[in-house]
Amino acid sequence: MSTLKDAKVVHTSVANEHEPKENGHSPFTQNALIFTAAALGNMFASAITNPLDIIKVRQQLKTQGSPHPLAAPGAKANAFWSVGLQMARTEGLMSLMNGLTASMLRELTYSGIRMGTYEYFKGSIHGLAPSALPTDGLTLKVFAASVAATLGSAVANPTDLVKVRMQAYYPTGPPYRSTRHAFASVWREGGLRALYRGTDATTIRGVVLSVSQICAYDQLKQSLKRRGAMQEGLGLHFTASMFAGFICSVTSNPVDVVKVRVMNDKERRYKSVLDCVRTILRQEGPMAFYKGFSMCWARLGAHTVLCFVAFERIRSLFGIAPM
């Protein structure tokens, strides 16, 4: 009798492990709701961290030797507090919210795709080689995050470029009246090609960021639950996202510096992404790739915690199981 009871418990446990996450939703509806939750969670996080993001961009645009014309007005120091205070004094406090609309559009497309399709690609890739790519393996997670990030970066590059342009400093005042005007101005520079300037850097950065952020979060959650250290809930979401935020800040900052420089290169100083990397190394040294790191960590760390906590909460409201 006891044996039958134990067997039933084991069977139930296995069944629950492989139970579909749809909770009554069709696969299409489930994927659409996950995309929506990812987009909303990231838009929420970006709205709160926009001041940190713009200070990071200004720091990354500052070149060695003399202040970059689009970096920070007259400030010799490049510390985040110095850049922030200088912006507030010379451009007004609301300058810290520059590019917010473009940032929201970017999160809707880029983050909606890279985070919202991660589980879809994870399931699809697992189906191609179930024995070689187990669902709890890191390799499957890396593949899924890479595909989702590549797709998201390719689609969202124009919004990312416009956001960077709107967040840069201009001595004669902001040249863009609105996000729409910024898109039109970039289009006049060279059409679709101008809007997709820096796509290679954006894609590399997107893959590096997503692999280190999403995979770290997924893997840490899985490990903590498997070892019985934590159970599903806010505490687990917060802890996993805190570690994921630091990891992705370390890995993505060098690529982010290059991406920002290339996207804001109106004078065409850089022939390519590789040329930009060589120029930075030659003129500023390897540590230049970590310009703005403290602000990158503050912004990306906070963004990671906020977006994953919001993402999981919105999923719950939609009746979808946690990630």
Rank of each mutant, 00 (worst) to 15 (best):
A182K: 04
T172C: 00
T117M: 12
S124T: 06
L151R: 00
V162Y: 07
S131A: 12
Y169S: 11
R193E: 13
P171L: 06
L151G: 05
I125T: 06
E189R: 15
R114E: 14
A154C: 11
G190A: 09
A132I: 11
A149Q: 09
I113V: 15
E119N: 07
V142P: 01
G137C: 12
A148D: 11
T172R: 13
A184I: 03
G173P: 08
D136C: 00
G152M: 14
I125A: 03
L138K: 01
A156L: 10
E119C: 00
S185L: 01
A132M: 11
M97N: 03
L195H: 09
G191E: 09
H181F: 02
Y110P: 02
G99M: 09
P171F: 07
G191D: 11
M166P: 10
T135V: 04
A145T: 10
G116T: 09
E119Y: 01
V155E: 08
M104I: 14
S103I: 02
S146L: 08
P174F: 00
V162N: 03
N157S: 10
G137S: 15
T172K: 14
H126A: 09
S124D: 00
G99R: 12
L128M: 13
P175A: 02
L128E: 01
S124Y: 06
L105E: 05
L105N: 06
V162W: 06
P171V: 07
